[in-house]
Amino acid sequence: MPRIIVVTSGKGGVGKTTTSAAIAMGLAKKGHKTAVIDFDVGLRNLDLIMGCERRVVYDFVNVINGEATLNQALIRDKNCNLLYILPASQTRDKDALSQEGVGRVLDELKKDFKYIVCDSPAGIEKGAHLAMYFADDAFVVTNPEVSSVRDSDRMLGILASKSRRAEQNDEPIKEYLLLTRYSPERVKLGEMLSVDDVQDILSLHLLGVIPESKSVLNASNSGTPVILDEKSDAGQAYADIIARYLGENRPHRFIEDKKGFFRKFFGSR
């Protein structure tokens, strides 16, 4: 059975699009045909993070309105031929998305794809609502920071009450925590909420911790999902997340402060 994954957070700027790009690429690299959809109508950015911004011809709204077929709008990724991107429309307002239209496109994608990743916009308005409405799994992206944790909790309430699964009394959406921009050194100093702190508050299944990393900006600068940077800590963290999501049992890395005694004295900052 194909699965629809929503990448959501409530708060903006926590790493939803970075995560959507990375996990979609990760799933495709594991041999699963995957589509990733940008739901941020008017403020699309997934195309830029995936490095296909110059190949956008038709978009999600064109497909919903019947102005283009799904095959015309889907962009095949340049790094992986099992990965396709459906960009958001840049010109129209958010009302261009309708529940019926989104449902229709997702149903069509389900015939051909194993995983459909929905990159949610920030906020709890229409775009965010439609991104999560049809989901089977939710990846809740959270920063170890008060406003992000609060907004994630709000989002969890919405997932549990406003999704299709909730409305139809089906098995609830499976919710997973992805803690991003984590800095073990600052946690050790008591300056940042720890993984355990965040889990105490949100009580979610932890899928992975992505450390604060220079490689994320490098990846977005060049338009390649960070998971392809296999030498980077963030890339490895996302690879672990995919493995865990697919059922592998991998110990968590990047939670402990790995800096040794020597580097603490003369360490890099």
């Binding site: 008060v146 050790k188 100093l189 008591g190 300056e191 508050i201």
Partner: peptide, 28 residues
């Protein structure tokens, strides 16, 4: 970094963040 090492026993703001969040989230 040398300074940080000696200051590391000091209580940081994270515990305050957690306390505030727990109250707020329960209420909401």
């Amino acid at each position: 970094s040398l300074l940080d090492y000696f200051r590391s026993s000091k209580v940081g703001s994270a515990s305050l963040a957690k306390e505030r969040l727990q109250i707020l989230v329960a209420h909401e």
